[in-house]
Write a protein that binds this DNA or RNA. Structure first.
Length: 675
RNA sequence: GCCACCAUGGCUUAGCGGUAUAGCACCUCAUUGGUAAUGAGGAGGUCGCGAGUUCAAUUCUCGCUGGUGGCUCCA
């Protein structure tokens, strides 16, 4: 029998007879308990059943590896579809990929399927897994495929789209069930015992709102029972730091249905966090030569006609406001809502709009007086509140809202100044992320799509601006990706993106170069040559909005803010009622030193009071009793439970002020360890 | 907006065709207690809103409002 040479992962070469499968080689290398789900053949992912007929290299794909988990998830999606079709024969499977957090499968004809139905499907999946069905790969011609999927228009659409005329493809078969798929897959359903279906939702066929709505089922799969249990526990744990839960527990913000969806009410404790952050940011703005400005919440429709926001973005704006005399006249004339809307779009009547962006107002500040090249760069900053009509279903906590305050600024610069100014914006992000210990974010540099002509401005200018963005992103020292086609039509941009506790990505800040608005508003400055030139604008909101940023921060700290940001920095707790005066006296002294203090002189026991105050995660609890009162001292209990007895009040105040001043990440004014 | 699910005092929650549990928080009294729950008592709810079915609805049906997961991951 002819032999073939197989290179093993350690570089050794083994000889096997042709006809051996990849799975058999993996067993030969790693033994029966190989823990692999598929194999790499010449670095390509293949099934265990693949027959080896040429010299090649082979390695196992461990169930724990990224690729292995992906294979498991994909196979679990197939198992899900098999189970669903057995229970709901009318259902039409469409697509079912592995995703970052598990897998899903989309079904047509599965309306009114709800979370209560998940249990039965999951049970069926377990049953199929126990049956230890072999998962086989079968090569099919285009005709065979068309016949196999004759009753499933979705699969037929995929076949028509993905296959060149006359090409075949593969299906995977397990028991009676088969699905169109490239693979690879695990070799048996027995590998998929540890699945858990998590949720049901809807999705559109091919992500297109105009096409059929499908029912999507999400699930998780792990290699062992323990791993699944750990996964579920980790998800539960993550939910505890959800900013919506913590926001309520810690009284940071409130959303009231009588006020409106997506409109954040900053309660006193949350307002402190916002104020402290804004002050922190403002200090750096001053240092970087920004000018703080204030502008109103509304502006005339005409302003937004010039900027291009109205009516182009009409769907994502609150409807305009119309002056009351005009409104009365229109109403007397029998003008309907749609007439009104048409008149506004055509420009026949004017009104005001809640501002969806701050730029037009800042532009008007720029053009309020003649500018010379000596004035540039001009940097106008404002914590400007804007309003956008987000879709009902999109609104969520503080991260997706309808009214929000951007840490906004607009820089008016000459062409030559773009690079330095973009870099300056990035530096600010770096300083503040570093102060907050936020390192888990990604950066996306949006560039123009070279094949498209939708972009305004000359291409040499774009090249320079894009290069400036790349350089600035480089300076951050974190991973960033270049994304052609992601630029705005008016200029390239840099976006900062973070994940929330349940893995959703949110864009925080953005820095955008803009050639368009200066054009639209005919901005200019007098150059050294005595001629008028057009400035370039840079829009930047490095943290996006105070709402979203604080939401993300709550989760980042899990509610346990560093002392400088903490809504209350020290809770003073009395041992008994006779210490109330002393407690209030030191509270006054601490407040005078600028420390945020709360006093609990109620008559509950000390243990009880500590227990209750812990829930609010103050950086420090200050315990005062007879000893402290006599000596003019305090006992400190840090958030982590560490204690320090009989510390002189003045020295504590000095220390905590220093900790606040230095923005120390973890409250740490404790001498003895005593957990 | 669309699909599924959810909505009970400040929070967590039981319950059901006959107007409702419990714990924490709150208040009162006793206790004056030294670092994760002292004891006893009390108050607090038109069961999200509006209609319908019924002798009767928090419970069933419909609508609305609000919330949650998702609607970008492509055989």
């Amino acid at each position: 029998m002819p032999m073939i040479q197989v290179t093993l992962p350690d570089g050794e070469v083994n000889e096997y007879s042709t006809g051996i499968t990849a799975g058999e080689v993996v067993i030969d290398i790693f033994g029966r308990k190989h823990g692999c789900v598929a194999a790499f053949i010449d670095d390509e992912q293949r099934d265990f059943s693949t027959i080896i007929s040429n010299n090649c290299s082979i390695d196992g794909i461990s169930a724990e590896s990224e690729e292995g988990i992906h294979v498991m998830r994909h196979s679990a999606a197939h198992l899900l579809a098999q189970a669903v079709v057995m229970l709901y024969p009318e259902a039409k499977p469409t697509i079912g990929p592995a995703i970052e957090r598990g897998f899903y499968y989309d079904f047509a004809n599965l309306e009114s399927f709800g979370e209560t139905d998940l249990k039965a499907v999951q049970k069926k999946m377990h049953e199929l897994a126990r049956n230890n069905l072999t998962i086989e790969r079968v090569e099919c011609s285009e005709d065979e495929l068309t016949e196999l999927f004759a009753t499933n228009p979705y699969k037929l659409e995929i076949i028509a789209d993905k296959l060149e005329d006359g090409d075949g493809s593969t299906i995977y078969r397990q028991g009676e069930w088969y699905d169109l798929c490239l693979g690879p897959h695990v070799h048996s359903t027995a590998k998929l015992m540890h699945v858990r279906l998590t949720s049901v939702s809807s999705a559109f066929w091919r992500g297109d709102q105009n096409r059929e709505q499908l029912t999507r089922i999400y699930g998780l799969v792990e290699a062992s029972k323990e791993a699944l249990k750990l996964k579920m526990a980790a998800l539960e744990e993550a939910k505890k730091r959800d900013h919506r839960k913590l926001g309520k527990d810690l009284q940071l913000f409130h959303v009231d249905e009588d006020v409106g969806q997506g409109l954040i009410l900053w309660t006193p404790r949350g307002a402190i966090i916002r104020t402290v952050l804004q002050n922190f940011i403002s200090e750096h703005l001053t240092r970087q030569g920004y000018h703080q400005v204030y502008t109103p919440h509304i502006g005339k429709l005409d302003l937004y006609r010039i900027s291009g926001h109205f009516p182009y973005y009409q769907d994502s704006q609150y409807p305009p406001l119309v002056e009351k005399d005009l409104m009365k006249k229109l109403s007397d004339d029998g003008c309907s809502c749609s007439d009104l809307s048409n008149l506004m779009v055509s420009g026949d009547i004017d009104g005001y709009m809640l501002k969806p962006m701050n730029c037009p107002h800042h532009i008007k500040i720029y053009s309020s007086q003649p500018r010379s090249y000596r004035d540039l760069p001009l940097r106008f900053a404002e914590f400007g509140t804007v309003y956008r009509w987000e879709q009902t279903g999109e609104i969520s906590g503080m991260t997706r809202v309808r009214g929000f305050t951007q840490d906004d600024a607009h820089l008016f610069v000459t062409e030559d100044q773009i690079a330095a100014e973009v870099l300056g914006c990035i530096e600010l992000v770096q300083i503040i992320f570093a102060a907050l210990g936020m390192s888990d974010y990604r950066v996306r540099v949006g560039l123009r799509d070279p094949d498209s002509s939708k972009y305004v401005g000359e291409s040499q200018r774009w090249d320079r601006a894009e290069e400036a963005c790349r350089k600035a992103a480089d300076s951050l020292g974190v991973n960033w990706s270049e994304e052609p086609g992601e630029a705005a039509f008016y200029g390239p941009k840099i976006d900062f993106i973070v994940k929330d506790v349940i893995g959703r990505e949110w864009q925080l800040g953005t820095v955008q170069v803009d050639y368009n608005l200066p054009e639209r508003f005919e901005l200019n400055y007098k150059g050294s040559d005595g001629e008028l030139h057009r400035p370039v604008m840079i829009h930047r909101a490095p943290f996006g909005s105070m709402e979203r940023f604080c939401g993300v921060l709550i989760e980042h700290f899990a509610g346990k803010f560093p002392t400088w940001l903490s809504p209350t920095q020290a809770h003073i707790i009395t041992i008994s009622e006779k210490h109330a005066d002393y407690a209030n006296k030191i509270a006054t002294k601490m407040r005078n030193a600028g420390i945020r203090v709360e006093v609990d002189d109620s008559d509950a026991t000390i243990g009880k009071k500590i227990r209750n105050h812990r829930k609010m995660y103050p950086a420090y609890m200050i315990i005062v009793g007879d000893g402290e009162m006599e000596n003019g001292t305090v006992s400190i209990r840090a958030r982590n439970g560490n204690q320090s007895a009989d510390v002189a009040l003045d020295s504590f105040i000095t220390d905590i002020c220093e900790e606040i001043e230095k923005k120390v990440a973890v409250p740490s004014l404790v001498l003895e360890e005593n957990c």
